[in-house]
């Protein structure tokens, strides 16, 4: 293990957490507990939607943060491609952010389907925003598949950065598709300027959901990108070890 640490400057025996991430994790868990309390106990049921409105406290934040995650992936990919240093750290951040984004988007689709069943009577509606979100989800699964194609770390970084920049072009299509196509989907309730209709505590719960899921996103991305760093170090060490073994074989013959 110590050889591994020396090989790539990463201590494999050291956990991925630091004092900062421990505080961040503790605060995130406290945030989740408060969100559960607010979402399930303190806030009232909606006049029209009943208790199903409580799904929104998870659905809306995960959707927003999933989009944010994909934007982070695009920015990190652009930083890798267009900065002269081509730092591999940007690639690791891009990959970690995309993984968490896919996780959040899966949660968005699942919670959205549950809410749709309770409110519309169907799990799925062929509505523009919903459908395009599903396409976006599959697109980033494709991005993650591209990251696992193999090759050197720089090859992975370059090709996945290009795919990320291609994929992020779909986000504006998702966001504005609700205005372009006729839609059954719930109109945006919070972002419509000057027309916020929610109860104060419900709005605060939604806001708290966004804060909590954002903290969780940062926490997970920090840990995940450190795990990717270690995975890369192990791969590099494996290659170095194999090369060294071949050299020794050559010397003994």
């Amino acid at each position: 293990m110590s050889t591994l640490a020396a090989a790539d400057g990463v201590a494999a025996t050291t956990p991925t957490g630091t004092r900062f991430t421990k505080y961040l994790g503790a605060f995130t868990l406290a945030g989740v507990a408060l969100l559960l309390l607010l979402g399930l106990v303190s806030t009232p049921a909606d006049q029209n939607q009943g208790d199903s409105v409580r799904i929104m406290y998870v659905h809306v934040p995960t959707a927003w943060i999933a989009y944010l995650a994909f934007v982070v992936t695009a920015i990190a990919s652009a930083m890798y491609l267009f900065r002269s240093a081509h730092s591999i750290s940007w690639d690791r951040i891009a990959g970690a952010s995309a993984e968490i984004g896919v996780l959040y988007m899966a949660l968005t689709l699942i919670t959205g389907s549950l809410w749709g069943r309770l409110t519309w009577g169907v799990f799925w509606e062929w509505d523009a925003r919903l459908t395009t979100t599903a396409f976006l989800f599959v697109t980033y699964i494709g991005y993650l598949a591209v990251r696992r194609l193999g090759g050197t770390h720089d090859q992975r970084a370059k090709r996945s950065a290009i795919v990320a920049l291609l994929a992020v072009l779909e986000i504006p299509l998702v966001h504005f598709s609700v205005r372009i196509w006729a839609s059954l989907h719930q109109e945006p309730t919070v972002l419509r300027a000057g027309d916020v209709k929610m109860d104060g505590l419900m709005l605060f719960t939604l806001f708290w959901g966004v804060v909590t899921f954002t903290l969780m996103f940062v926490w997970l991305v920090v840990h995940r990108q450190r795990v990717i760093t270690m995975e890369d170090a192990i791969e590099s060490l494996g290659l170095d070890t194999a090369l060294e073994a071949r050299r020794r074989e050559g010397q003994t013959v």
Partner: peptide, 27 residues
């Protein structure tokens, strides 16, 4: 051709190419 170039040298490109192309061609 854009995505074909990406998958050209990849192992398992037969399955990767549809996964990459199909969401993009929806419009």
């Amino acid at each position: 051709v854009t995505y074909g170039g990406l998958a050209a040298k990849a192992k398992g490109r037969e399955t990767l190419l549809p996964l990459l192309i199909l969401p993009v061609v929806a419009p």
